[in-house]
Write a protein that binds this DNA or RNA. Structure first.
Lengths: 113, 113
DNA sequence: CAGTTAATTAACTACACAGGAAAGTATGAA
DNA sequence: TTCATACTTTCCTGTGTAGTTAATTAACTG
């Protein structure tokens, strides 16, 4: 399996869990510690800690240590890789998807913002 | 878990396997029977049959029976659902993602092609 | 230093899943 | 009705993962 394929596998695997998707959604509202991420869920802290590790392995989360807290921040690259991967299906997603197609073209030209 | 969340889970789970992603990619070149789908892979037919079933459960594949062959066709809806889900991350994907954002807006207005 | 807080690691259980081999099903052909 | 083709289903094994509690690490606090 190529490197990109392994990365995609890790990303899709990470996104296949609803708790992990909820953690990502939470992080769009700003950084959070593992404890803060755990709060809305009815599972133990170790369980959340493992979810965070899976998200980290996929590159979807970046952790920085501050004292005994580990602040988690969202990383967009893996999501962009999914958009790129979806490019091969644009004709199946309808003509409106041309806008996404255009976005992908820009990406390849290095016009990433 | 909501219905949509379960659908997303099934879709991401299906896409988390490289063999299944390869099967999908093959189907962009046209319909194929299970046997034809199995050909490029070094695994048994039963294994492919099971992969096809996972893709079917996720709604990514549609099967029609013709004699003893089962022709598989790609279905785009789950991929569109992923695009919709990615909408919440558009600001993290950069300004160029606005084009995708516009596409999503069109989708919500019912302007699906 | 002892104690508290934040999070990870370890050890375990339960379950899902990828894979193979072998048997079963369904359709068409001789 | 017998055989071949195209799958699917069943049963099995090994592996991965989500969850738990308990123990451990790391850093600050009094």
């Amino acid at each position: 399996m190529t490197v990109e394929a392994e990365a995609l596998t890790a990303t899709f695997t990470a996104l296949a869990d609803p708790t992990r998707r909820a953690i990502l959604a939470r992080l769009t509202r700003g950084e959070a510690t593992v404890g803060q991420l755990a709060e809305p869920f009815d599972v133990s802290l170790p369980a959340i800690s493992k979810h965070v590790k899976v998200l980290q392995r996929a590159g979807l989360i970046e952790q920085t240590r501050r004292a005994q807290w580990r602040s988690c921040r969202l990383r967009a690259e893996p999501l962009r890789d999914i958009v790129t991967w979806m490019g091969q299906y644009r004709e199946f997603l309808g003509d409106s998807f041309d806008r996404l197609d255009q976005y992908l073209t820009d990406l390849q030209k290095g016009e990433r913002p």
